[in-house]
Design a binder for these strands. Structure first.
Lengths: 208, 208
DNA sequence: CCTACCGATCGGTAGG
DNA sequence: CCTACCGATCGGTAGG
């Protein structure tokens, strides 16, 4: 309806996400966001009411983005043939990897406003995490997955670890020498998750 | 030498760590730290020069604390018989678990000032992470550890994941239902790390 | 969407 | 270790 206004709102939200992710909400003045978006501070306040309103709008934007992306990503993973759990794990990991700034924003929000973020995310993610935990249980019942894995704890651990690798990996890597790349860390996460989940084959095939 | 002054400095540092961890540096006024320590703001500035000086002193305190604790923790783990790698992993994890506020502070610093923190931590931690990576290599050469593990990436991953579980686990858990406790997540991290590292026994014992 | 203005709070200093 | 004070910046409003 109003192309011009939507344009400005989008520009503000884009710069807000970028700056909130980089410096945190408390460390970012709405003045600096307005300047980055090419407008004045009162204009930003006109569009979002207040700094808190802008923060909420940023969160809603992120969650909406996930609502659109997650089903597609997980469907792609599932379509690779049956309950390919390591493809699901890979999907979770790649999801954060696609936009490291978003991963950092989420980590910051989990530290700053865990309850508010929790309410928005829980509604969106619970169906998917249930799916993953249930798939693990099914695999355990059929013997294809290790029986000693805790489905819920494993699911949470993978989410936390994928977040940490993307949001902190570049810096955590420098604590080790030679520093592994974020790609290498992500690959190792996938390997670790796969090995920790797949049951060793009882009847081993002939050795090569 | 000056008991009274050290007392005040300690009180300031204690409250600064607590508030920086909870709200971030940008989200914490030195006024609020001074009030929590029972002094006025100019007194805090007298002791630490500036807010930036206080932040640096907080980081130094944390790193010094680790310098004292880490060798003991890792020696305890190593003394449990040979190169018990899962005990080392457990030590890393428990290290953060002991004080979740510190884990949150570290995550915040990795987001806010990765270079400054990196310089302080690298010096302290590189010897230990080298030790861990080298122990993995030795285990791989002897066949007791999986050859497909990447020693440096694995080490970094464990550090990141242990941090994430302690700093974010309480909130990440609520994205799954039923929410796993932080203890359960930590136990799962240890299980995952162990399975992903230990080579399966080639000659399986008689089945039970 | 802007200019002009507001009170509150910020980190820091002077001076004792 | 305090009282008194500083300029700068903060988020937000008035009015157009």
């Amino acid at each position: 309806m109003n192309q011009q206004v939507d344009d400005v709102r989008t520009r503000i939200l884009t710069e807000a996400i970028r700056l909130f992710a980089a410096r945190g909400v408390a460390g970012t003045s709405i003045q600096s966001i307005a300047a980055a978006a090419g407008i004045t501070r009162p204009t930003l306040v006109y569009h979002f009411g207040s700094k808190a309103g802008l923060r909420t709008a940023v969160l809603r934007t992120v969650v909406d983005h996930w609502r659109a992306e997650l089903p597609r990503l997980l469907a792609d993973a599932a379509s690779q043939g049956g309950p390919r759990l390591d493809a699901l794990v890979s999907a979770v990991s790649n999801f954060f990897r696609r936009d490291p700034a978003l991963a950092r924003l989420i980590v910051r929000e989990m530290l700053d406003h865990p309850d508010e973020l929790g309410i928005m995310l829980r509604e969106e993610l619970l169906p998917w995490t249930r799916l993953l935990a249930e798939a693990i249980r099914v695999g355990q019942a059929s013997g294809s997955l290790r029986s000693d894995a805790d489905p819920e704890a494993f699911t949470t651990l993978i989410i936390s670890s994928a977040l940490a690798v993307v949001a902190l990996g570049a810096h955590a890597g420098s604590l080790v020498s030679p520093a592994p790349s974020v790609d290498a860390q992500q690959a190792e996460l996938l390997r670790v998750a796969r090995v920790a989940l797949l049951a060793p084959r009882k009847t081993s095939p002939e050795e090569g």
